[in-house]
Design a binder for these strands. Sequence first.
DNA 1: ATTATATGTCAGGAATCCTAACATTGTTTT
DNA 2: AAAACAATGTTAGGATTCCTGACATATAAT
Lengths: 128, 128
Amino acid sequence: MNDQDRRSMPLFSIGIVMKLTELTARQIRYYEENELITPERTSGNQRLFSFNDVDKLLEIKDLLDKGLNLAGIKLLLKGEVIVEEKVEQKSDISDKELRKILKHELSEAGRLGRTSLRQGELSRFFRS
Amino acid sequence: MNDQDRRSMPLFSIGIVMKLTELTARQIRYYEENELITPERTSGNQRLFSFNDVDKLLEIKDLLDKGLNLAGIKLLLKGEVIVEEKVEQKSDISDKELRKILKHELSEAGRLGRTSLRQGELSRFFRS
DNA sequence: ATTATATGTCAGGAATCCTAACATTGTTTT
DNA sequence: AAAACAATGTTAGGATTCCTGACATATAAT
């Protein structure tokens, strides 16, 4: 079992993810509705989140704070948009949408007093 | 937050721990009853296990396979017994118990086809 | 002003977990 | 051998957590 496998193992219930990310259940489910994350389910249909999922949620939170909307975050998470030039090739997103997405990037660095996990912190789990 | 903090964060429900360790809920609760582990609880009294707890459970499973009993495993986990000589000093455990505990140690190495986690494997989580 | 986005809140039901009690099997102890 | 003990299974009733769906609300975009 390699690291990628470990990172994508379904481990956490939604209650724990709420604490780890300080998001509400409503928010987490809404992000799934919009396909920003796709957590596994138990045989009884309850969500089980992986480390990767939690990481994504922390990033989503971060980007929302910076003013992006879900559509933009979705594209960023999918890696279909680089924060450089990248245009042409009749992609299915309009120029306007692209500009909208990139408009806010790289503004103020996040410096809010958060008590739980900060983006990027989860990946330091167990770097003993 | 250091690694020890991370390792002792209450994260996993009993259902997930069952899958990770391939122990039954009955077994896990029984080990807690005997104070081999002391998982946290949610505000609603449901158990939440840490990485350390899961590690301990995997070790318990291992040692049970090797013939130790819970009393002996408890002492080993508490680190009050070294697998060497160590006697005298009117400890509150009898010589007989001590011999019983050490009797089986270091027998055959575990080589059973397990599908989930093996003892020691959990600590390799995220050693990218 | 209207629509869209993101989130809150509530309700009814389903899944998971809790403790306690009793059963079972194998191993010591008497 | 009988009784006691250790470890685990099983069952039951109740509590907690999670599910989806619907409606409300506040802010932002058109």
